[in-house]
Amino acid sequence: MVEILKELEERFQVSDLVQQKDHLAFVSVDKNKAIPMITWLKDQAGYTSLTLITAVDWLEDGKFQLTYMINNPKNKTQIAARVMIDRENATMESAHHLWESVRIYQRELKEMFGIDFPGSPGVDESFILEGWVDIPPYRRDFDTKKYSEETYFPRPGRQSNDPAEYMKSKMYPNE
């Protein structure tokens, strides 16, 4: 694992290495070097299996983190590449040519986070949501609670009391 990470540092200038456990390491890589690095890992380094592609919304920093996790079935190690992209007009190079399943991930990311992958087959088709008009729901600024309160009817007659507030109102209302 150490050698491959060293090589990634040299070849693709990865940073923020975290060896989470024996067989799992996280690295950060530049947006434009990400797909070449994954391609290299897949074709040259034995990381032939894709585990997942997903995104993390760092709303405060204005960034999306894309995580590509790939797996080497031979030496049983796993590398996760973090790619930080701008949240505004989020776009990333498509990797659908590498694995057949990538287009599914990218389609989901487009729908759930609004990250575009130009050229990825069917990326604009709705994957799970049909007729969705709000902002992409997996973004941090989409408030599920608020949405459900606005969309559905709460059960009438439900009312709760905070113990401390209730005790104050009954025991010492004027203090």
Partner: peptide
């Protein structure tokens, strides 16, 4: 699913509320 509803007047150490379940 739980609301705290009045059961008796509060005393020191007991808010007087009790949990009410909504099985929905």
């Amino acid at each position: 699913a739980i609301d705290m509803v009045p059961f008796k007047d509060p005393i020191s150490g007991d808010s007087g509320l009790r949990p009410r379940l909504d099985y929905g």
